[in-house]
């Protein structure tokens, strides 16, 4: 079973600290807007290795790490 990071878009403040920390460059800002007016991040699950570095850096506990069923 693989591990993948998932964002809670409403919590994200578009600071980008997770993007700087991600060793796989699989996080980017989406074009969506959340209710606070931030562009939340999106995660490319193909590339994510589930290391959790993004969670270490996120000031807003906006990211969770889940075990997922392989598609």
């Amino acid at each position: 079973m693989a591990r993948k990071a998932f964002v809670d878009e409403e919590r994200c403040k578009e600071c980008g600290l997770c993007i700087t920390a991600c060793p796989k460059s699989c996080i980017s800002f989406s074009s969506k807007l959340n209710s606070k007016g931030f562009h939340p991040i999106e995660i490319d699950h193909e590339k994510c290795i589930g290391c959790g570095f993004c969670i270490d850096m996120c000031p807003d506990t906006a990211i969770e790490l889940w075990e997922v069923a392989e598609a």
Binding site: H45, I55, W66, E67
Partner: peptide, 14 residues
């Protein structure tokens, strides 16, 4: 992608 089990999320103390 189907989520199965939470490995790490917000700590209980927050």
């Amino acid at each position: 992608m189907e989520k199965k089990k939470l490995i790490r999320g917000r700590p209980d103390a927050l």
